[in-house]
């Protein structure tokens, strides 16, 4: 059970160059010479941007929620908030965090092999403390990702599909949380893998696990979700059955919301 209670999120951002010494020096020298500054220089100060506004939601055990919305509507940000990567600036989050499956990163250099990525995952998550054995984990990953000898070869030689298989195997081989937050599905993969992934994800979630899935693919959302959230401009503007969420997203009500 997870609840966002009137949660808003501000992010603090700089210009693309952060604090620029040249600009700061110009400011200091300018101040000492009593010069006025243009707005351009003043804009380099950190700015507070409202990213999510007054989100009130309740996620029950076993809920499968599809996130719908245009690019920049706040889908990924709400996933990060619910995963604990961000903390609400206003309001609060109660209950269980979701495990984020957002980044397609293996946490090791591409010069290392899949087996090293499996070890890195094991070490990074401290799986030994949860009672898992390294050798057991590595052989499980090797078996489930089904990339054959490539498991022992450098990742840089992997196809996009092999990479996806490895990442998916790592993220679903051990249950780090009952709840998953997934951004944009699982990436590329062949039909066989897509079926395996679907089956794996269903068994991983079981009946108690909750899922938050952000995607632009209606088919993918239909495959896994029953409930839909529609996001716009950092606001949650619809929460209801998935099909109704699709209809809302395509309706005039969405445009005027």
């Amino acid at each position: 059970m997870t609840e966002l209670d009137n949660a808003s999120l501000y992010l603090y951002s700089m210009t693309s160059k952060g604090v620029n010494i040249k600009k700061e020096l110009v400011k200091i020298v300018g101040k000492s010479l009593n010069l006025r500054f243009s707005n351009k220089v003043e804009k380099s100060n950190p700015s507070k941007i409202l990213i999510l506004k007054n989100i009130n939601v309740f996620i029950n055990k076993g809920d499968r929620i599809g996130l719908i919305g245009a690019n920049g509507s706040g889908k990924s940000t709400i996933l990060k908030l619910i995963s604990g990567i961000y903390k609400p600036s206003i309001g609060q989050m109660k209950g269980d965090y979701f495990y984020p499956m957002i980044i397609r990163d293996l946490n090791v250099s591409d010069d290392l092999a899949g087996i090293d990525a499996a070890k890195a995952f094991f070490y990074q998550h401290g799986l030994g403390l949860l009672g898992y054995d390294l050798d057991w984990f590595v052989s499980k990953i090797e078996e489930t990702c089904s990339i054959g000898d490539y498991f022992l070869r450098p990742i840089k030689y992997y196809s996009e599909g092999m990479r996806t298989r490895l990442i998916f195997s790592l993220l679903t081989s051990v249950r780090l949380s009952e709840n998953l937050a997934i951004d944009e599905g699982f990436g590329t993969g062949d039909k066989k893998f897509a079926l395996q992934a679907e089956e794996k994800l269903r068994s991983f979630l079981g009946s108690e696990g909750s899922l938050l899935l952000a995607s632009h693919s209606n088919d993918l959302l239909r495959q896994f979700c029953k409930r839909g959230w529609v996001m716009k401009g950092g606001r949650l503007i619809f929460d209801g059955p998935l099909e109704k969420a699709f209809s809302f997203y395509d309706s005039k009500a969405y445009l005027t919301a």
């Binding site: 250099s109 290392l112 090293d116 070890k119 990074q124 401290g126 030994g128």
Partner: peptide, 24 residues
């Protein structure tokens, strides 16, 4: 002992970075 175990894990992750640096 949990702290020591985690430190050992970070040590091993550091070693993977060294392994990558000298790969090939």
């Amino acid at each position: 002992s949990r702290l020591v175990y985690q430190l050992q894990n970070y040590w091993k992750l550091g070693w993977l970075d060294n392994k990558a640096r000298y790969a090939k």
